[in-house]
């Protein structure tokens, strides 16, 4: 009688089988991608390991790097991490405010406001970020305006990202349907109340995932601020000790690890936020 195992007692529906097959395929793919990543990472680490690896008759040698130098300067370079994070957070906050204002300006029917918004976006997007950073650090002092390094850096990055992110906020604002505004108006809300209570909360939720992406990009673009020499963040510190002791390779590898690690952590957080938001929206 018991030729069927317990599992087979309940026959699976067609849909269940298809779903399971798809899930298996997906899992398989992910496993293989994971293995490939591991191999690539191994090759990268090996390349800078200074070790020899013999496969058959061939011997590969890794590049020798000075680990003593790295250990000695770890705390100095890591000290720039806090500065990098500080600049990024302050800049993204400024960028979000500017982006929201620029997006609202873009939706305005009042010509001067619309013009101001498009003018700002055009000017910033039409010039290099590198130039804008030097403008705040080196051109303003010529006019007698001396800003502390970090303020100048935040202004440059914030203004730049604000212009690019205005597009995100514009899309977010237009994602809120006309019916939402009409419902708010119908219960007697003023335009300001409608914006603050109904449109903005929904638009901001829409804008959070892409803003996270911009923030991740910004942590890396903040390295450009080092070029001015006034802000001692991650990049500045690694270039400084690297040059001084002729070990730029090691110094840059360390900075790269910090940037990459930071990006991985932020991407993880970003994915979690995105998953949570999409769950609530169902």
């Amino acid at each position: 009688m018991n030729i069927f195992s317990k599992k087979q007692d309940v026959p699976k529906s067609q849909a269940e089988l298809i779903y399971q097959a798809q899930a298996n395929k997906e899992r398989h793919f992910r496993t293989n991608v994971g293995i490939s990543w591991f191999i690539l990472l191994f090759i990268l680490v090996f390349t800078f390991s200074g070790q020899d690896l013999t496969i058959g008759s061939k011997t590969f040698s890794g590049i020798k790097i000075d680990t003593v130098f790295m250990a000695n300067n770890l705390s100095f370079i890591a000290g720039g991490l806090a500065e990098t994070i500080k600049i990024s957070i302050m800049s993204i906050a400024l960028a979000m405010m500017l982006a929201l204002l620029a997006a609202l300006g873009r939706l305005s029917t009042f010509p001067p406001i619309y013009a101001l918004s498009t003018f700002y976006v055009s000017l910033i997007r039409g010039t290099p970020l590198y130039l804008q950073i030097f403008f705040f650090f080196l051109a303003l002092p010529q006019l007698g305006i001396r800003l502390p390094g970090i303020i100048a850096g935040v202004l440059a990055l914030g203004l730049n990202y604000g212009a690019y992110m205005s597009e995100i906020f514009r899309a977010a604002l237009s994602s809120v349907g006309k019916g939402q505004r009409e419902a708010a108006i119908a219960i007697g809300m003023t335009p300001a109340q409608t914006m603050r209570r109904i449109v903005l909360p929904q638009a901001l939720r829409f804008a959070i995932p892409p803003t996270g992406n911009e923030f991740i990009a910004m942590t890396k673009d903040s390295a450009l601020v080092s070029a001015t020499g006034f802000v001692h963040e991650l990049m500045w510190r690694s270039v400084k000790v690297g040059r001084a002791q002729f070990h730029t390779l090691e110094a840059l590898i360390m900075a790269a690890i910090f940037y990459w690690g930071m990006t991985l952590i932020l991407s993880y957080v970003q994915n979690r936020i995105e998953a949570r938001l999409s769950k609530g929206d169902r």
Binding site: G179, A186, G188, M189, Q202
Partner: peptide
């Protein structure tokens, strides 16, 4: 409205008290 137009970021109760509290 035909399309209901409830505010999706508020609970049912918050939807209903929004007008009286904020507007009135």
């Amino acid at each position: 409205f035909q399309e209901f137009n409830l505010f999706p970021h508020m609970s049912v109760l918050e939807n209903v008290i929004e007008g009286p509290v904020i507007v009135k």
